[in-house]
């Protein structure tokens, strides 16, 4: 008998992966049935049938008041905020990260400031954002930027800063200017790491998005969940949560694929000839 630590899952990998999910579903179904048996109007654990009809209602029937398909307009609004926020955060982190990581002068000037700024709890300044930028889209996007950019940037500074000194000297001995070292040596080697930290930042980004939407919005996935909470509408809230999870999971997967395709050298893979 081998030690457990040396046993490989082999072909049973998929089965093993599905098992915990199946277990959760089973516990839910049993629990739901039990509560329903005790109280036919229970709303806390609705059966799957009710969830699917609730989703059908919001996703495929027009809302009577606005004439929109709520599920999709919520998704669109949330994804738009997320996309704008993450893009700006990434761009900001990239510029500052390269400046601080590569240039001693940039480091002297910006490193202390960013070290202090990144310690500000983003949620603590949310009221300030609402006061300064109003209750519209801008404050939600800014919250995502404030919440995500510092982490991305610090990671980038570290990546660029830990490039071997030899590489930077070598590039200069090939005639590279500071700008050329930046775009041909530092940037390409920073990008795979940036994507990796962006993947890790997806969780916080959703956290800030939903927090901002919960407090002030008129559409969005977070807004809907918190609105429906008043009606105890678990039949819609649960599928919404599942949907948010799925979106985040797919984004993570897409970023992983992008990195593997675009930077094969960073993943030890064979490049295309």
């Amino acid at each position: 008998m081998r030690r457990v630590m040396n046993m490989q899952p082999g072909r049973a990998r998929w089965l093993l992966a599905l098992l915990p999910f199946a277990l959760i579903v089973m516990v839910y179904v049993v629990g739901s049935a039990q509560r329903r048996a005790e109280n036919p109007s229970d709303k806390v654990l609705p059966p799957f049938g009710e969830m699917s009809s609730a989703i059908h209602r919001v996703a495929f029937e027009e809302d009577k008041r606005t004439g929109e398909y709520l599920f999709w307009s919520d998704t669109g609004a949330s994804l738009e905020r997320l996309a704008i926020g993450l893009s700006i955060a990434t761009a900001l982190a990239l510029v500052l990260g390269l400046l601080i990581g590569l240039l001693p002068i940039g480091n002297a000037m910006f490193a202390p400031m960013t070290a202090v700024m990144s310690m500000i709890p983003p949620m603590a300044i949310l009221p300030i954002l609402f006061i300064v930028f109003g209750l519209g889209e801008l404050s939600k996007v800014v919250l995502i930027i404030v919440g995500v950019a510092p982490c991305l940037m610090r990671d980038l500074v570290f990546t660029v800063g830990s490039l071997p000194r030899e590489q930077l000297v070598k590039a200069q001995s090939l005639g590279a200017s500071t700008w050329q070292v930046l775009i041909r040596v530092a940037l390409p080697q920073a990008l795979p790491r940036l994507i990796a930290s962006l993947r890790l930042a997806l969780g916080p980004a959703f956290l800030f998005l939903i927090s901002a939407e919960a407090i002030s919005a008129d559409s969005g996935l977070g807004y809907r969940i918190f609105l429906l909470r008043r009606y105890l509408a678990m039949d819609t809230i649960l599928p919404y949560v599942a949907w948010i999870t799925l979106l985040a999971f797919l984004m993570d997967l897409a970023l992983a694929q992008l990195s593997r395709r675009a930077f094969p050298w960073a993943h030890g893979a064979e490049p295309k000839a």
Binding site: P164, K170, S173, L174, G175, V185, F263, W265, A266
Partner: peptide, 16 residues
């Protein structure tokens, strides 16, 4: 500068 080329023991080539 480009008038002086260099080869180190390690890290002389660019991994990317």
């Amino acid at each position: 500068g480009p008038d002086r080329g260099v080869v180190f023991q390690r890290y002389s080539v660019f991994p990317h």
